[in-house]
Design a protein around this nucleic acid. Structure first.
Length: 465
RNA sequence: GUCCCCAUCGUCUAGCCUGGCCCAGGACAUCGGCCUUUCACGCCGAAAACAGGGGUUCAAAUCCCCUUGGGGACGCCA
């Protein structure tokens, strides 16, 4: 039997980090086995599902490189199928109509809660409000005793008491299936063989097992991975900050880093930390997936991102930078200059945004000096040194790094100064600040004319003090 | 409250299934040092964990039980 996995997000928001990891696991599992990866949109909540969410989720999946083989299927377009199966259950007496309104249920639930108790649906209420044209939901008739055993690939056998499970709704009054029902029907009809999903669904599994049983369908192999937690140990949510794939993309993270980070949350392969997508496909198995919850650690993601920033070809990074630069009003293209800048800045950046935010001085013709730098390095006694440097550089025919170094060394020797004493003032003159790539690299990127221009401006600035 | 799951450095984890090689390995972060032209990168080093208690065994991080802690679920949400 060929392996078929699926990812089934509900379009009620963006693609969450946890959902993304589930998607990655399912995708890798399918690829590893040479099977298929199916995408299904669980949009049975008419009030909360939106097209924008669907678009954003698909976009995020593509960005991550999680290509699906089939779909996206939408549950809202499969209503007939669910209805048909529900009718079948009705006919065989394994399900029944329930006329109790959601409102009444809600009231009873509230009531019970106020009394400090727990609400339990009672089968005998089913006929309340019954009438010829009265709307009804369909509930599954569940066993009153015994245990329901579920086999989980990660956790082994998990058993539940039948008394814990009441007759639950499978088809809502609006004709839409409930989550548990739709999942079963879809997984069965789409011939899904392996389901990898969040821990929070483990509790749903016995219900689904009951549906599989009532319909004489075979349940796929289940694997419940633990949740991703925030730093406070609570389930990761919006109040922890960025939680969606889109957020990280906007912050300048690379998809390789996000995938690499997420997959290592719960899965491991010995001591290895860095994995390419191909490598993941080759190495991913459920054997190496852990079962305890994992805390999301932004610093490690940052580290991975800076790793990929450094190891990807600068030309590629430059290309990714263009939209960010345009947004800043710096109109650039992937030219030699940008690539050189990227090659340098990539060494000291954690995100694409970091790079975009620290290259202004390469593209302005009016640099402003930081006060601290101005006061510290632009002292009168540095004036002759800067003049020497300027003069030396002016006479250079070939403005190569090698030749620049010679000029600096000559001045260093003549004035008996260490490179540090000269490089910092020059850096301030060229960049306005004290932090930048190597000074010769900066000059190389700027070019002779610009370097001379900035040096001269610094000289007159100091003279005017 | 009931039910389910989980438990190794601050964090992600290796080791656990198939006890001894583990006074517990790697990575991020932290702290030192080296390199150095600033910031980084890189390199070297340090500190840092088997939740607690009972068993089983010659021997337990590894197997069993209890406690504790954490998470999740109790919807005509998914």
């Amino acid at each position: 039997m060929t392996v078929r996995t699926r990812f089934a997000p509900s379009p009620t928001g963006s693609l969450h980090i946890g959902g993304a990891r589930t998607a990655i696991f399912n995708c890798l599992f399918a690829r590893h086995a040479g099977g298929s990866f199916v995408l299904r949109i669980e949009d049975t909540d008419q009030t909360r599902s939106t097209q924008e969410s669907i678009d954003e989720i698909l976009d995020a999946m593509e960005w991550l490189g999680l290509n699906w083989d089939e779909g996206p299927f939408r549950q809202s377009e499969r209503l007939d199928i669910y209805r048909e199966h529900a009718e079948k259950l009705l006919e065989s007496g394994k399900a029944y109509r329930c006329f109790v309104t959601p409102e009444e249920l809600q009231d009873r639930r509230k009531e019970a809660q106020e009394r400090g108790g727990v609400f339990r649906y009672d089968r005998k209420w089913a006929e309340e409000n019954a009438g010829p044209d009265k709307p009804y939901a369909i509930r599954l008739l569940t066993p009153d005793e015994g245990t329901i055993e579920v086999d989980d690939a990660l956790r082994g056998k998990v058993s539940f008491e039948a008394t814990e499970i009441e007759d639950f709704v499978i088809l809502k009054m609006d004709g839409f299936p409930t989550y548990n029902f739709a999942v079963v029907i879809d997984d069965a009809t789409m011939e899904i063989t392996n389901v990898i999903r969040g821990d929070d669904h483990l509790i749903n599994t016995p219900r689904q097992a009951l549906i599989y049983g009532a319909l004489s369908l075979e349940m796929p192999q289940m694997a419940h991975v633990s949740m991703i937690l925030g730093p406070d140990g609570k389930r990761l949510s919006k109040r922890h900050g960025a939680t969606s794939v889109t957020d990280y993309r906007a912050e300048g993270y690379l998809p390789e880093a996000v995938v690499n980070y997420l997959v290592r949350l719960g899965w491991s392969f010995g001591d290895q930390e860095i994995f390419s997508l191909d490598e993941l496909v080759e190495k991913f198995t459920l054997d190496n997936v852990g079962k305890s919850a994992a805390v999301f650690n932004p610093e490690k993601l940052e580290w991975l991102n800076s790793h990929y920033l450094r190891s990807k070809p600068p030309e590629k990074i430059a290309g990714l930078l263009i939209p960010l630069l345009n947004e800043k009003g710096i109109h650039s293209e992937v030219d030699e200059k940008l690539v050189k800048i990227v090659r340098e800045l990539t060494q000291r950046a954690k995100t694409l945004n970091d790079i975009a935010d620290s290259l202004d001085y390469f593209y302005t013709d009016q640099i402003t000096y930081e006060d601290k730098a101005d006061n510290k390095f632009f002292k009168p006694e540095i004036l002759p040194v800067l003049e020497d440097i300027t003069q030396g550089l002016t006479s250079l025919e070939d403005f190569t790094i090698e030749n620049m170094k010679e000029v600096f060394e000559r001045v260093m020797a003549e004035r008996e100064l260490k490179l540090g004493k000269i490089a910092q003032p020059v850096r301030v003159a060229l960049t306005g600040g004290t932090v930048s790539p190597g000074i010769f690299e900066v000059m190389d990127i700027l070019g002779k004319d610009e370097v001379l221009d900035r040096l001269n401006k610094a000289v007159s600035h100091i003279s005017a003090k």
